[in-house]
Design a protein around this nucleic acid. Structure first.
Lengths: 218, 218
DNA sequence: TAAAAAGTTTAGCCTTGGCTAAAATAAATA
DNA sequence: TATTTATTTTAGCCAAGGCTAAACTTTTTA
Protein backbone atom coordinates (compact mmCIF):
# COMPACT_ATOMS: atom_id res chain seq x y z
CA UNK A 1 0.00 0.00 0.00
CA UNK A 2 1.25 3.45 -0.87
CA UNK A 3 1.51 6.01 1.87
CA UNK A 4 -0.60 9.14 1.94
CA UNK A 5 2.47 11.18 1.00
CA UNK A 6 3.25 9.05 -2.04
CA UNK A 7 -0.36 9.22 -3.22
CA UNK A 8 -0.36 12.98 -2.82
CA UNK A 9 2.84 13.41 -4.80
CA UNK A 10 1.51 11.27 -7.62
CA UNK A 11 -1.78 13.12 -7.69
CA UNK A 12 -0.05 16.49 -7.69
CA UNK A 13 2.23 15.55 -10.54
CA UNK A 14 -0.80 14.39 -12.47
CA UNK A 15 -2.67 17.60 -11.75
CA UNK A 16 0.26 19.77 -12.77
CA UNK A 17 1.00 17.66 -15.86
CA UNK A 18 0.84 16.41 -18.50
CA UNK A 19 4.07 18.30 -19.26
CA UNK A 20 7.15 17.88 -17.15
CA UNK A 21 6.57 19.31 -13.71
CA UNK A 22 9.11 21.65 -12.13
CA UNK A 23 10.34 20.81 -8.67
CA UNK A 24 9.34 24.19 -7.34
CA UNK A 25 5.79 23.98 -8.67
CA UNK A 26 5.36 20.57 -7.18
CA UNK A 27 6.78 21.67 -3.85
CA UNK A 28 4.49 24.67 -3.76
CA UNK A 29 1.44 22.62 -4.71
CA UNK A 30 2.17 20.25 -1.84
CA UNK A 31 3.30 22.87 0.63
CA UNK A 32 6.72 21.37 1.21
CA UNK A 33 10.26 22.64 0.71
CA UNK A 34 11.77 22.10 -2.76
CA UNK A 35 14.43 19.85 -1.27
CA UNK A 36 11.73 17.57 0.10
CA UNK A 37 10.16 17.29 -3.31
CA UNK A 38 13.49 16.45 -4.91
CA UNK A 39 14.06 13.67 -2.44
CA UNK A 40 10.63 12.21 -2.99
CA UNK A 41 10.99 12.43 -6.77
CA UNK A 42 14.12 10.35 -6.47
CA UNK A 43 12.38 7.77 -4.35
CA UNK A 44 9.44 7.61 -6.75
CA UNK A 45 11.82 7.29 -9.69
CA UNK A 46 13.54 4.40 -7.94
CA UNK A 47 10.14 2.77 -7.52
CA UNK A 48 9.34 3.19 -11.19
CA UNK A 49 6.40 5.53 -10.67
CA UNK A 50 8.03 8.71 -11.86
CA UNK A 51 10.71 9.59 -14.31
CA UNK A 52 12.76 12.47 -13.02
CA UNK A 53 15.54 14.08 -15.01
CA UNK A 54 17.67 16.16 -12.65
CA UNK A 55 17.39 19.90 -13.25
CA UNK A 56 14.80 19.23 -15.97
CA UNK A 57 11.57 18.06 -14.44
CA UNK A 58 9.48 15.05 -13.60
CA UNK A 59 6.59 13.15 -15.11
CA UNK A 60 4.62 10.04 -14.32
CA UNK A 61 5.46 6.64 -15.76
CA UNK A 62 2.48 4.61 -16.99
CA UNK A 63 2.46 2.83 -13.66
CA UNK A 64 2.61 6.09 -11.76
CA UNK A 65 -0.17 7.50 -13.86
CA UNK A 66 -2.37 4.56 -13.07
CA UNK A 67 -1.89 5.11 -9.39
CA UNK A 68 -2.50 8.83 -9.73
CA UNK A 69 -5.72 8.19 -11.60
CA UNK A 70 -6.79 5.77 -8.91
CA UNK A 71 -6.45 8.54 -6.33
CA UNK A 72 -8.35 10.94 -8.57
CA UNK A 73 -11.08 8.36 -9.04
CA UNK A 74 -11.45 7.86 -5.31
CA UNK A 75 -11.49 11.60 -4.75
CA UNK A 76 -14.19 12.28 -7.29
CA UNK A 77 -16.32 9.33 -6.26
CA UNK A 78 -16.15 10.54 -2.68
CA UNK A 79 -17.12 14.06 -3.66
CA UNK A 80 -20.06 12.72 -5.59
CA UNK A 81 -21.09 10.38 -2.81
CA UNK A 82 -20.87 13.01 -0.09
CA UNK A 83 -22.67 15.56 -2.22
CA UNK A 84 -25.49 13.12 -2.81
CA UNK A 85 -25.98 11.94 0.77
CA UNK A 86 -25.02 14.71 3.13
CA UNK A 87 -25.30 18.16 1.76
CA UNK A 88 -22.18 20.11 2.27
CA UNK A 89 -20.80 23.28 0.70
CA UNK A 90 -18.78 22.82 -2.44
CA UNK A 91 -15.53 23.80 -0.78
CA UNK A 92 -15.97 21.52 2.21
CA UNK A 93 -16.79 18.68 -0.16
CA UNK A 94 -13.39 18.99 -1.74
CA UNK A 95 -11.51 19.17 1.56
CA UNK A 96 -13.20 16.13 3.00
CA UNK A 97 -12.62 14.06 -0.10
CA UNK A 98 -8.98 15.15 0.00
CA UNK A 99 -8.60 13.50 3.38
CA UNK A 100 -10.76 10.44 2.86
CA UNK A 101 -9.46 9.47 -0.57
CA UNK A 102 -6.39 7.82 0.95
CA UNK A 103 -8.39 5.62 3.29
CA UNK A 104 -10.80 4.20 0.73
CA UNK A 105 -10.39 0.48 0.07
CA UNK A 106 -10.98 -1.02 -3.35
CA UNK A 107 -14.10 -2.71 -2.01
CA UNK A 108 -15.60 0.46 -0.67
CA UNK A 109 -14.66 2.27 -3.85
CA UNK A 110 -16.62 -0.34 -5.78
CA UNK A 111 -19.54 -0.17 -3.44
CA UNK A 112 -19.74 3.60 -3.75
CA UNK A 113 -19.38 3.51 -7.53
CA UNK A 114 -22.15 0.95 -7.76
CA UNK A 115 -24.38 2.89 -5.39
CA UNK A 116 -23.92 5.98 -7.55
CA UNK A 117 -24.51 4.06 -10.77
CA UNK A 118 -20.90 4.31 -11.98
CA UNK A 119 -20.94 8.02 -12.69
CA UNK A 120 -18.47 9.52 -15.15
CA UNK A 121 -18.57 13.04 -13.77
CA UNK A 122 -18.33 14.50 -10.28
CA UNK A 123 -20.49 17.39 -9.05
CA UNK A 124 -18.00 19.90 -10.47
CA UNK A 125 -18.28 18.26 -13.86
CA UNK A 126 -14.84 16.69 -13.67
CA UNK A 127 -14.50 13.32 -15.36
CA UNK A 128 -14.17 10.34 -13.01
CA UNK A 129 -11.54 7.88 -14.21
CA UNK A 130 -12.70 4.27 -14.52
CA UNK A 131 -11.38 1.50 -12.29
CA UNK A 132 -8.54 0.88 -14.73
CA UNK A 133 -7.72 4.50 -15.24
CA UNK A 134 -9.81 5.12 -18.35
CA UNK A 135 -10.71 8.76 -18.71
CA UNK A 136 -13.95 9.44 -20.55
CA UNK A 137 -12.94 11.44 -23.62
CA UNK A 138 -14.42 14.84 -23.33
CA UNK A 139 -15.20 17.18 -26.16
CA UNK A 140 -15.28 20.26 -23.99
CA UNK A 141 -13.42 23.42 -24.69
CA UNK A 142 -12.19 26.09 -22.33
CA UNK A 143 -14.47 29.03 -21.76
CA UNK A 144 -11.52 31.28 -22.49
CA UNK A 145 -11.30 29.82 -25.98
CA UNK A 146 -15.00 29.62 -26.76
CA UNK A 147 -16.71 31.52 -29.56
CA UNK A 148 -18.83 34.60 -28.91
CA UNK A 149 -22.59 34.86 -29.46
CA UNK A 150 -23.35 31.21 -29.17
CA UNK A 151 -25.24 29.20 -26.60
CA UNK A 152 -22.75 27.47 -24.28
CA UNK A 153 -23.33 24.99 -21.48
CA UNK A 154 -20.99 24.86 -18.53
CA UNK A 155 -19.60 21.35 -18.24
CA UNK A 156 -16.88 21.75 -15.67
CA UNK A 157 -15.86 24.21 -12.97
CA UNK A 158 -12.68 24.24 -10.87
CA UNK A 159 -12.88 22.70 -7.40
CA UNK A 160 -9.57 23.66 -5.88
CA UNK A 161 -9.41 27.40 -5.44
CA UNK A 162 -11.63 28.60 -2.59
CA UNK A 163 -11.98 32.19 -3.85
CA UNK A 164 -12.87 31.03 -7.32
CA UNK A 165 -15.35 28.57 -5.88
CA UNK A 166 -16.97 31.30 -3.83
CA UNK A 167 -17.16 33.59 -6.84
CA UNK A 168 -18.74 30.87 -8.97
CA UNK A 169 -21.23 30.11 -6.24
CA UNK A 170 -22.11 33.79 -5.90
CA UNK A 171 -22.75 34.09 -9.61
CA UNK A 172 -24.63 30.82 -9.76
CA UNK A 173 -22.28 29.19 -12.18
CA UNK A 174 -22.56 25.42 -11.94
CA UNK A 175 -22.25 22.55 -14.35
CA UNK A 176 -25.20 22.67 -16.77
CA UNK A 177 -25.69 26.41 -16.43
CA UNK A 178 -26.24 28.08 -19.82
CA UNK A 179 -24.47 31.23 -20.92
CA UNK A 180 -23.50 33.20 -23.99
CA UNK A 181 -20.34 35.24 -24.47
CA UNK A 182 -20.89 38.83 -25.50
CA UNK A 183 -17.38 40.19 -25.79
CA UNK A 184 -13.78 39.39 -25.11
CA UNK A 185 -11.26 41.92 -23.90
CA UNK A 186 -8.45 41.57 -26.39
CA UNK A 187 -5.86 42.77 -23.89
CA UNK A 188 -6.19 40.43 -20.90
CA UNK A 189 -8.75 37.95 -22.15
CA UNK A 190 -11.46 38.96 -19.67
CA UNK A 191 -14.96 38.09 -20.84
CA UNK A 192 -18.40 39.60 -20.70
CA UNK A 193 -21.18 37.07 -20.71
CA UNK A 194 -24.91 36.82 -20.54
CA UNK A 195 -26.07 34.46 -17.83
CA UNK A 196 -29.75 33.95 -17.10
CA UNK A 197 -30.39 37.43 -18.43
CA UNK A 198 -27.73 39.00 -16.22
CA UNK A 199 -24.50 40.40 -17.60
CA UNK A 200 -21.43 39.12 -15.84
CA UNK A 201 -17.73 39.97 -16.10
CA UNK A 202 -15.58 36.86 -16.05
CA UNK A 203 -11.87 37.19 -15.29
CA UNK A 204 -9.52 35.33 -17.58
CA UNK A 205 -8.14 33.31 -14.67
CA UNK A 206 -11.62 31.91 -14.16
CA UNK A 207 -12.29 31.47 -17.86
CA UNK A 208 -9.20 29.32 -18.07
CA UNK A 209 -10.59 26.82 -15.61
CA UNK A 210 -14.18 26.59 -16.76
CA UNK A 211 -15.07 24.11 -19.49
CA UNK A 212 -18.08 24.40 -21.72
CA UNK A 213 -19.70 22.39 -24.45
CA UNK A 214 -21.51 23.61 -27.53
CA UNK A 215 -23.92 20.79 -28.07
CA UNK A 216 -26.56 19.97 -25.53
CA UNK A 217 -25.29 16.82 -23.87
CA UNK A 218 -26.78 16.19 -20.47
CA UNK B 1 -3.64 16.74 14.94
CA UNK B 2 -2.86 13.30 16.29
CA UNK B 3 -1.36 10.76 13.94
CA UNK B 4 -3.13 7.60 12.94
CA UNK B 5 -0.77 5.61 15.14
CA UNK B 6 -1.47 7.72 18.21
CA UNK B 7 -5.22 7.47 17.67
CA UNK B 8 -4.96 3.72 17.31
CA UNK B 9 -2.97 3.33 20.49
CA UNK B 10 -5.47 5.41 22.45
CA UNK B 11 -8.40 3.51 21.04
CA UNK B 12 -6.79 0.15 21.79
CA UNK B 13 -6.02 1.11 25.37
CA UNK B 14 -9.62 2.17 25.73
CA UNK B 15 -10.91 -1.07 24.26
CA UNK B 16 -8.69 -3.18 26.48
CA UNK B 17 -9.44 -1.11 29.58
CA UNK B 18 -10.80 0.12 31.88
CA UNK B 19 -8.19 -1.72 33.99
CA UNK B 20 -4.52 -1.22 33.45
CA UNK B 21 -3.48 -2.61 30.12
CA UNK B 22 -0.43 -4.88 29.81
CA UNK B 23 2.19 -3.96 27.27
CA UNK B 24 1.94 -7.34 25.62
CA UNK B 25 -1.82 -7.23 25.23
CA UNK B 26 -1.63 -3.80 23.73
CA UNK B 27 1.15 -4.83 21.35
CA UNK B 28 -0.80 -7.88 20.26
CA UNK B 29 -3.99 -5.89 19.75
CA UNK B 30 -2.11 -3.47 17.51
CA UNK B 31 0.05 -6.05 15.80
CA UNK B 32 3.35 -4.48 16.81
CA UNK B 33 6.33 -5.69 18.82
CA UNK B 34 6.11 -5.17 22.59
CA UNK B 35 9.12 -2.85 22.47
CA UNK B 36 7.28 -0.60 20.04
CA UNK B 37 4.33 -0.38 22.41
CA UNK B 38 6.58 0.50 25.32
CA UNK B 39 8.13 3.32 23.38
CA UNK B 40 4.78 4.71 22.34
CA UNK B 41 3.42 4.44 25.89
CA UNK B 42 6.30 6.58 27.02
CA UNK B 43 5.63 9.16 24.36
CA UNK B 44 1.93 9.23 25.20
CA UNK B 45 2.74 9.54 28.89
CA UNK B 46 5.00 12.50 28.12
CA UNK B 47 2.10 14.07 26.23
CA UNK B 48 -0.25 13.59 29.14
CA UNK B 49 -2.58 11.20 27.36
CA UNK B 50 -1.59 8.01 29.14
CA UNK B 51 -0.26 7.14 32.54
CA UNK B 52 2.21 4.32 32.28
CA UNK B 53 3.87 2.73 35.28
CA UNK B 54 6.86 0.70 34.09
CA UNK B 55 6.43 -3.03 34.46
CA UNK B 56 2.90 -2.47 35.78
CA UNK B 57 0.66 -1.29 32.99
CA UNK B 58 -0.91 1.70 31.33
CA UNK B 59 -4.22 3.53 31.41
CA UNK B 60 -5.71 6.62 29.82
CA UNK B 61 -5.66 10.00 31.51
CA UNK B 62 -8.93 11.97 31.28
CA UNK B 63 -7.51 13.78 28.29
CA UNK B 64 -6.45 10.54 26.65
CA UNK B 65 -9.84 9.05 27.29
CA UNK B 66 -11.54 11.98 25.63
CA UNK B 67 -9.44 11.47 22.53
CA UNK B 68 -10.04 7.74 22.55
CA UNK B 69 -13.78 8.29 22.77
CA UNK B 70 -13.59 10.72 19.91
CA UNK B 71 -12.09 8.00 17.75
CA UNK B 72 -14.73 5.52 18.89
CA UNK B 73 -17.44 8.06 18.10
CA UNK B 74 -16.12 8.60 14.59
CA UNK B 75 -15.83 4.86 14.08
CA UNK B 76 -19.38 4.10 15.15
CA UNK B 77 -20.87 7.02 13.29
CA UNK B 78 -19.11 5.84 10.16
CA UNK B 79 -20.36 2.29 10.60
CA UNK B 80 -23.87 3.58 11.01
CA UNK B 81 -23.59 5.91 8.06
CA UNK B 82 -22.14 3.31 5.74
CA UNK B 83 -24.65 0.70 6.85
CA UNK B 84 -27.48 3.08 6.11
CA UNK B 85 -26.34 4.29 2.70
CA UNK B 86 -24.38 1.53 1.02
CA UNK B 87 -25.17 -1.91 2.13
CA UNK B 88 -22.12 -3.82 3.06
CA UNK B 89 -21.53 -6.97 5.06
CA UNK B 90 -21.13 -6.50 8.76
CA UNK B 91 -17.46 -7.40 8.75
CA UNK B 92 -16.58 -5.10 5.89
CA UNK B 93 -18.41 -2.30 7.63
CA UNK B 94 -16.06 -2.55 10.55
CA UNK B 95 -12.91 -2.69 8.45
CA UNK B 96 -13.82 0.33 6.39
CA UNK B 97 -14.72 2.41 9.42
CA UNK B 98 -11.40 1.38 10.96
CA UNK B 99 -9.60 3.07 8.10
CA UNK B 100 -11.82 6.09 7.58
CA UNK B 101 -12.19 7.05 11.23
CA UNK B 102 -8.81 8.78 11.24
CA UNK B 103 -9.59 10.96 8.25
CA UNK B 104 -12.93 12.30 9.46
CA UNK B 105 -12.92 16.03 10.22
CA UNK B 106 -15.00 17.51 13.02
CA UNK B 107 -17.23 19.14 10.43
CA UNK B 108 -17.92 15.94 8.55
CA UNK B 109 -18.45 14.13 11.84
CA UNK B 110 -21.11 16.69 12.69
CA UNK B 111 -22.69 16.48 9.28
CA UNK B 112 -22.95 12.70 9.49
CA UNK B 113 -24.29 12.77 13.04
CA UNK B 114 -26.93 15.29 12.01
CA UNK B 115 -27.83 13.32 8.91
CA UNK B 116 -28.33 10.22 11.04
CA UNK B 117 -30.31 12.10 13.67
CA UNK B 118 -27.60 11.91 16.36
CA UNK B 119 -27.90 8.19 16.97
CA UNK B 120 -26.76 6.71 20.27
CA UNK B 121 -26.17 3.19 18.99
CA UNK B 122 -24.37 1.79 15.99
CA UNK B 123 -25.71 -1.14 13.92
CA UNK B 124 -24.06 -3.63 16.28
CA UNK B 125 -25.86 -2.03 19.21
CA UNK B 126 -22.72 -0.40 20.57
CA UNK B 127 -23.22 2.96 22.23
CA UNK B 128 -21.94 5.97 20.30
CA UNK B 129 -20.16 8.46 22.55
CA UNK B 130 -21.41 12.04 22.31
CA UNK B 131 -19.29 14.84 20.88
CA UNK B 132 -17.85 15.51 24.35
CA UNK B 133 -17.27 11.88 25.17
CA UNK B 134 -20.52 11.20 27.02
CA UNK B 135 -21.41 7.53 26.92
CA UNK B 136 -25.12 6.76 27.13
CA UNK B 137 -25.57 4.72 30.29
CA UNK B 138 -26.70 1.29 29.37
CA UNK B 139 -28.62 -1.09 31.54
CA UNK B 140 -27.72 -4.18 29.57
CA UNK B 141 -26.34 -7.35 30.98
CA UNK B 142 -24.14 -9.98 29.41
CA UNK B 143 -25.90 -12.93 27.84
CA UNK B 144 -23.56 -15.17 29.80
CA UNK B 145 -24.95 -13.74 33.03
CA UNK B 146 -28.60 -13.59 32.08
CA UNK B 147 -31.38 -15.54 33.81
CA UNK B 148 -32.96 -18.64 32.25
CA UNK B 149 -36.56 -18.89 31.05
CA UNK B 150 -37.13 -15.23 30.47
CA UNK B 151 -37.69 -13.19 27.35
CA UNK B 152 -34.44 -11.44 26.43
CA UNK B 153 -33.73 -8.93 23.67
CA UNK B 154 -30.31 -8.74 22.08
CA UNK B 155 -28.98 -5.23 22.47
CA UNK B 156 -25.38 -5.57 21.38
CA UNK B 157 -23.24 -7.99 19.43
CA UNK B 158 -19.45 -7.98 18.96
CA UNK B 159 -18.09 -6.39 15.80
CA UNK B 160 -14.44 -7.29 15.92
CA UNK B 161 -14.07 -11.05 15.58
CA UNK B 162 -14.75 -12.24 12.03
CA UNK B 163 -15.60 -15.84 12.97
CA UNK B 164 -17.95 -14.73 15.68
CA UNK B 165 -19.55 -12.29 13.29
CA UNK B 166 -20.04 -15.00 10.72
CA UNK B 167 -21.54 -17.33 13.31
CA UNK B 168 -23.94 -14.65 14.50
CA UNK B 169 -24.96 -13.88 10.96
CA UNK B 170 -25.55 -17.55 10.22
CA UNK B 171 -27.79 -17.89 13.26
CA UNK B 172 -29.56 -14.63 12.58
CA UNK B 173 -28.54 -13.02 15.82
CA UNK B 174 -28.75 -9.23 15.50
CA UNK B 175 -29.58 -6.39 17.80
CA UNK B 176 -33.32 -6.58 18.66
CA UNK B 177 -33.55 -10.30 18.10
CA UNK B 178 -35.56 -12.02 20.85
CA UNK B 179 -34.44 -15.17 22.61
CA UNK B 180 -34.92 -17.18 25.77
CA UNK B 181 -32.30 -19.20 27.59
CA UNK B 182 -33.20 -22.81 28.24
CA UNK B 183 -30.19 -24.16 30.06
CA UNK B 184 -26.69 -23.32 31.08
CA UNK B 185 -23.86 -25.83 31.10
CA UNK B 186 -22.46 -25.51 34.60
CA UNK B 187 -19.02 -26.65 33.49
CA UNK B 188 -18.00 -24.26 30.68
CA UNK B 189 -20.87 -21.81 30.68
CA UNK B 190 -22.17 -22.82 27.27
CA UNK B 191 -25.84 -21.98 26.74
CA UNK B 192 -28.84 -23.51 25.07
CA UNK B 193 -31.34 -20.98 23.85
CA UNK B 194 -34.61 -20.75 22.03
CA UNK B 195 -34.44 -18.36 19.11
CA UNK B 196 -37.41 -17.87 16.82
CA UNK B 197 -38.55 -21.36 17.68
CA UNK B 198 -35.18 -22.92 16.89
CA UNK B 199 -32.90 -24.30 19.55
CA UNK B 200 -29.35 -22.99 19.37
CA UNK B 201 -26.16 -23.82 21.24
CA UNK B 202 -24.24 -20.68 22.19
CA UNK B 203 -20.58 -20.99 23.17
CA UNK B 204 -19.54 -19.15 26.29
CA UNK B 205 -17.02 -17.07 24.33
CA UNK B 206 -19.91 -15.68 22.32
CA UNK B 207 -22.19 -15.32 25.33
CA UNK B 208 -19.54 -13.13 26.93
CA UNK B 209 -19.71 -10.62 24.12
CA UNK B 210 -23.42 -10.42 23.54
CA UNK B 211 -25.47 -7.98 25.60
CA UNK B 212 -29.16 -8.32 26.24
CA UNK B 213 -31.86 -6.35 27.97
CA UNK B 214 -34.85 -7.61 29.90
CA UNK B 215 -37.28 -4.80 29.30
CA UNK B 216 -38.46 -3.91 25.87
CA UNK B 217 -36.63 -0.71 25.02
CA UNK B 218 -36.44 0.00 21.36
C1' DT C 1 13.36 -19.47 48.63
C1' DA C 2 16.18 -20.19 44.67
C1' DA C 3 15.98 -21.00 39.86
C1' DA C 4 13.43 -20.82 35.64
C1' DA C 5 10.05 -18.61 32.84
C1' DA C 6 7.43 -14.82 31.37
C1' DG C 7 6.92 -10.16 30.62
C1' DT C 8 8.90 -5.51 30.03
C1' DT C 9 12.15 -2.14 29.02
C1' DT C 10 16.52 -0.34 27.05
C1' DA C 11 19.78 0.14 23.40
C1' DG C 12 20.66 0.58 18.95
C1' DC C 13 19.28 0.27 14.27
C1' DC C 14 16.18 1.33 10.06
C1' DT C 15 12.87 3.90 6.82
C1' DT C 16 9.90 7.71 5.81
C1' DG C 17 9.20 12.32 5.07
C1' DG C 18 10.05 16.58 6.66
C1' DC C 19 13.59 20.75 7.33
C1' DT C 20 17.80 24.26 6.48
C1' DA C 21 22.10 25.61 4.56
C1' DA C 22 25.36 25.09 1.12
C1' DA C 23 26.76 23.58 -3.47
C1' DA C 24 25.72 22.89 -8.27
C1' DT C 25 23.40 23.88 -12.50
C1' DA C 26 20.56 26.56 -15.75
C1' DA C 27 18.61 30.86 -17.29
C1' DA C 28 18.61 35.75 -17.75
C1' DT C 29 20.85 40.07 -18.23
C1' DA C 30 24.37 43.41 -18.70
C1' DT D 1 30.01 36.31 -23.43
C1' DA D 2 30.59 37.01 -18.58
C1' DT D 3 28.12 37.56 -14.60
C1' DT D 4 24.19 37.78 -11.79
C1' DT D 5 19.94 35.48 -10.53
C1' DA D 6 16.84 31.68 -10.16
C1' DT D 7 16.22 26.95 -9.69
C1' DT D 8 17.55 22.49 -8.25
C1' DT D 9 20.14 19.23 -5.83
C1' DT D 10 23.17 17.50 -2.09
C1' DA D 11 24.45 17.08 2.61
C1' DG D 12 23.28 16.67 7.03
C1' DC D 13 19.91 17.05 10.55
C1' DC D 14 15.36 15.69 13.05
C1' DA D 15 11.07 13.15 14.80
C1' DA D 16 7.88 9.34 14.35
C1' DG D 17 7.22 4.53 14.46
C1' DG D 18 8.67 0.41 13.39
C1' DC D 19 12.18 -3.70 14.37
C1' DT D 20 15.64 -7.16 16.99
C1' DA D 21 18.70 -8.42 20.62
C1' DA D 22 20.07 -7.87 25.15
C1' DA D 23 19.16 -6.43 29.90
C1' DC D 24 16.15 -6.04 33.57
C1' DT D 25 11.83 -7.08 36.55
C1' DT D 26 8.25 -9.82 38.08
C1' DT D 27 5.97 -14.07 38.54
C1' DT D 28 5.84 -18.90 38.71
C1' DT D 29 7.46 -23.22 39.90
C1' DA D 30 10.40 -26.65 41.68
Amino acid sequence: MDSVAVENYLKSIWELGPDDVATQDLAQHLNVAPASATKMLQRLTARGLVSHIPYKGASLTPEGQLKALSVVRRHRLLETFLAQTLNLGREQLHDEAERLEHALSADLEDAIATYLGNPTKDPHGHPIPGPDGQLPTDTDLLLSESPLNQRLIISQVPDRNPEMLAWLERNEIFPDTQLELISRDSFDGGLTANLNGKTVQIASSVANEVHVSLEDDS
